[in-house]
Design a protein around this nucleic acid. Structure first.
Lengths: 343, 343
DNA sequence: ATCGGGGCGTCAGGCCATGTCGCACAAGAG
DNA sequence: CTCTTGTGCGACATGGCCTGACGCCCCGAT
């Protein structure tokens, strides 16, 4: 009998095993596990591994799939997340906040991926709650979203995980895409390149065989997707996500640095005092209740949109180009309302 | 000797212990641990618990604080997160996306609380990355934020966790607050009531002794905070966060349900086709390239702000009240630009 | 100085964990 | 059909770990 080096080894090995066993669709057999342990420098007999998982499954939700002969082990779907060290209540609260906020950003199938983490956070919060039984969440925390009041589009179940997986493993995908020219549904083989989240729409950047140009595929228009074994390639000439975005592919051209000068009302001045436009922002209070704000910012579509949205609360003083652009936009927007009779 | 019920018990007990030992500032002594085990139905001698943690610390980053006599055990700061079942790559990617997005929403000290989770996600992604060594994150994923282009205010380190803790444990706080009337710094004892995140500013709702009215304290203006042992109380008459927000305390009154009717240009029509204003949204394409959109939505400040921001791309046709409001806002905003000479 | 409590070394006993062996069973090859 | 191979699983011997009990020691407090 080889010298055992203590029970330490047993506990360690079993914890390693727990970390190796996957969730539902994946599965690992006892010989698989033995090999992976060996790879980590732990050599035990196959019989021991078998006994290990059997033992662990007696008090953990491990399931043995005995339909196929090399039995496969995996975690039960309802297996709660156990983290070590345990999540502290503050982290749990932060996680819950983020998850709630993500409703605007991520498709439901992506959010569903965080279910174990969120459930765990909920558990921590509930048990950390005071004795009065008042649960802190969600009664006492609220997120007021500032994005556009639009609903994220619905996406067929199961598509998004495949996109993620294809991107992660850099494998081609076969997708069914409903193209923008209404209703045309076609199958394509694509090389996934990148994901862009532009609230509330998610885009997959990809090339479509046999072409080389980078396309923006709205994720919710992908009706079905399957993973292939063909490795994905970047387009000839390389792929630079930053460059693509900087070039304005998503209406987000970076824009020049400008010295923005605004005249704002007292309310807005106070808000800007709290959340600044830029590090070098200056606010001078004027005599008439308005304030003059200067800051060095980028001239982006988002900035214009924000300035327009503030309506009469703000006047763009400079630079002249931006002032003109805003003035013109206001002017032409106003035109539609000049006739008494709405169109 | 009492009947042991197998090695199962040992392994299970030690894993439970791992889940009970907290991170840094907190600590648990062996008697504490024994008691908590007993609470969970596991009765072992104190000596056994001592031996357990000693054993575990031989291969896990557990630290024993032996400066104070009832020794305290806690996890090393560098202890990596081990989760069971292991995080899958898709979840890891989702977590990273959320974390990146949270830069606009949460103060840095709150985001820092997710460090172990994010580090773990990073680890999973790196090991799942393809053999080419190209790391997926953050080269291939990008989030384009749609909120206002403002920087979240800075907050003194260490304040936010105290706020969270006070709220969670419902204990009073002693804070140093820089009031809105510029520069006035005062100490107060407060009863924390709720947290409101309104991008990019975070507010703590609280009552300030000896008063009963609910105040909105901007978290970044709290310069210092300490936890007290005094239990926090809700104000007389109860506290209803939903009611407060519905009443418009944060410029977010809920608003009536209205039948919104818009005339939009082709681009915007397409965007609305993707991300709808409401479930019942209808789009009719007009002959002149514009489209008519109708949807049942809430008449909120956010909606007005969004409509204004779209500028000439949209015309509010109905309801008349909203049409008038937008028209008026455009009119008065335009006034500032009528004089050739900027103010 | 005395005392008490918590930490820790020691010890005996029982039982657990491990490798080995052998058998059963299914699938696939010859 | 038979043989082989891979796999699951029961049995067994043995070494050693785990457990509770006991008592010593150190340190702080009275």
């Amino acid at each position: 009998m080889p010298e055992g080096q203590g029970m330490r080894a047993t506990l360690q090995r079993r914890m390693l095993l727990l970390g190796m066993i996957p969730r539902r669709p994946r599965r690992l057999s006892a010989p698989d596990l033995k090999e992976r342990l060996a790879y980590r420098g732990i050599d035990v007999s196959l019989r021991t591994v078998e006994r290990d998982v059997e033992n662990l499954s007696s008090f953990l939700p491990l399931v043995c799939d005995d339909r196929e002969r090399p039995y496969g082990w995996f975690w039960s779907d309802e297996a709660p997340l156990q983290d070590v060290p345990a999540m502290d209540p503050e982290t749990a609260l932060t996680l819950q906040i983020l998850h709630a906020h993500s409703a605007q950003l991520l498709p439901p199938s992506a959010r569903a991926r965080l279910k174990p983490q969120v459930a765990r956070a909920r558990e921590v919060l509930d048990s950390a709650g005071d004795a009065s039984g008042l649960s802190l969440w969600p009664e006492r925390v609220r997120i007021l979203s500032n994005g556009p009041p639009l609903n994220p589009p619905e996406m067929p179940d199961g598509v998004f995980p495949i996109l993620q997986q294809g991107l992660l493993e850099r494998r081609c995908l076969d997708i069914t895409y409903r193209s923008r020219s209404k209703g045309q549904v076609k199958d394509h083989r694509i090389h996934p390149l990148a994901l862009v989240f532009r609230e509330p729409v998610t885009y997959l950047l990809a090339t479509m065989e046999p072409h080389q140009d980078v396309l923006h595929l709205a994720a919710h228009r992908i009706e079905a997707s399957t993973l292939t074994d063909v490795p994905a390639r970047d387009p000839e000439g390389g792929f630079d996500l930053n460059q693509i975005i900087r070039d304005g592919a998503f209406d987000y051209p970076e824009g020049e640095l400008i010295t923005l000068e605004l005249r704002v009302n007292a309310d807005l001045a106070y808000h800007l005092h709290e959340a600044r436009l830029a590090e070098d922002q200056l606010i001078e209070r004027g005599p008439d209740g308005t304030s003059r704000v200067t800051a060095t910012v980028r001239d982006t579509a988002r900035l214009k949109w924000w300035l327009l949205g503030l309506g009469a609360g703000v006047e763009v003083v400079g630079p002249p180009s931006l002032r003109d652009a805003i003035a013109q936009e206001l002017e032409s927007a106003r035109l539609a309302y000049r006739t008494k009779d709405p169109a």
